[in-house]
Every structure is written in structure tokens, then in C-alpha cells.
């Protein structure tokens, strides 16, 4: 990926709870995702955190770390799948995440999304390093909550809590 430097990050980037108007919000649950990056020895990583449904189709973007649209093509899967979602960046962007740092994202999810074959996916890329679309894919289930999962190249662990 060839992009200029991204900001070396705050230890934690807290995403504002996103207020997507999903149905049955009253019965929804709050998802808290904690993503710990590896010490991959490069500039801050661009990350796209999103949901896909049981057929692998794009459902919703939870967070995009990294502000330059020029480089979103390096988050290849997300960029391709979410192409029809004109609001994919609405209120869910922040700075890129430095190597070894942690990204914390919270989102309100409808009950219907949980234990229904949905997957949390993260695409990652950093400058002069290899793009890693779908660096990690974790089924969104109550059973998986609280269990750290490991990613391929950039993600050390991904842990989520459901409240």
C-alpha cells in the first residue's frame, strides 16, 4: 500500500456509539469490539470493521480507521462489498491505528443480527506493506463473545462483548 503517513495513534480510539436507525433499537444490544494490533513495524494501519450476512453479503460498516479516501481501495473486500452503501462512512471514521495499539468500537445492534449467521470482518492495510482484506472473520454469536480471536497479519486479537 502506498500512502503517506497516518497519525500514530492514541492508545485507544473510542468510537461514538453509532446511531444507525436499525429496527427494534429498543430491543437492541450494545456491541463493544476491542481490536489489538500486532507490532507489524509500519505506519498506522487503515482498518475497516464491518458486518456481512449469512450469504457473505455486506450488511453494515461499524468503523473505518484512517481518513484518506485515496487509500480505501487497499481495504479491498470492504471497499468492493460496501460500494452500494452511500452512507458507509457516516459518523464511523477516525484516525488510523498505530502498530501495537488498540482500537475500541461500540455499536448498537438489533437482536436479529446476533446468532443469525452474521460475521464481523476487518480489512487492514498499512503503507508499503501488504493489504490484508478480511484479516479476521469472526461469527457474531453470543457464544463467541468474550473470546479473543486471532487475525492473519495485522490483528493480534479481536474480542467483543455483548450487553
Amino acid at each position: 500500500m502506498s500512502k503517506p503517513m497516518s497519525k500514530p495513534l492514541l492508545a485507544t480510539t473510542v468510537a461514538a456509539a453509532c446511531a444507525l436507525a436499525l429496527p427494534a433499537l429498543a430491543h437492541g444490544r450494545q456491541l463493544t469490539l476491542t481490536t489489538q494490533l500486532k507490532n507489524y513495524g509500519g505506519d498506522g494501519a487503515y482498518l475497516a470493521v464491518y458486518l456481512t450476512d449469512s450469504k457473505g453479503a455486506y450488511a453494515r460498516t461499524l468503523w473505518v480507521a484512517g481518513g484518506k479516501a485515496k487509500f480505501y481501495k487497499h481495504l479491498a473486500d470492504w471497499n468492493r462489498l460496501s460500494v452500494g452503501d452511500t452512507k458507509r462512512l457516516a459518523g464511523v471514521t477516525g484516525a488510523s491505528v498505530g502498530a501495537g495499539r488498540t482500537l475500541k468500537v461500540t455499536a448498537d445492534l438489533a437482536d436479529a443480527l446476533i446468532d443469525a449467521g452474521y460475521e464481523i470482518r476487518i480489512d487492514a492495510a498499512a503503507e508499503d506493506m501488504r493489504d490484508s482484506p478480511s484479516d479476521i472473520r469472526v461469527p457474531l454469536t453470543t457464544q463467541n463473545a468474550g473470546k479473543p480471536q486471532t487475525g492473519k497479519q495485522y490483528v493480534q486479537t479481536l474480542t467483543y462483548q455483548l450487553k
Binding site: 484518506k68 479516501a69 485515496k70 481501495k73 479491498a76 462489498l81
Partner: peptide, 14 residues
């Protein structure tokens, strides 16, 4: 880099 010029031909085909 500052977004004043667009390099890409458009969105990637799905």
C-alpha cells in the same frame, strides 16, 4: 494525497 486530485478510475466493480 490531500485529495485535490482523484487518481482512481471509479469504484471497483463488484
Amino acid at each position: 494525497t490531500l485529495g485535490l486530485l482523484e487518481l482512481d478510475a471509479g469504484p471497483e466493480p463488484d
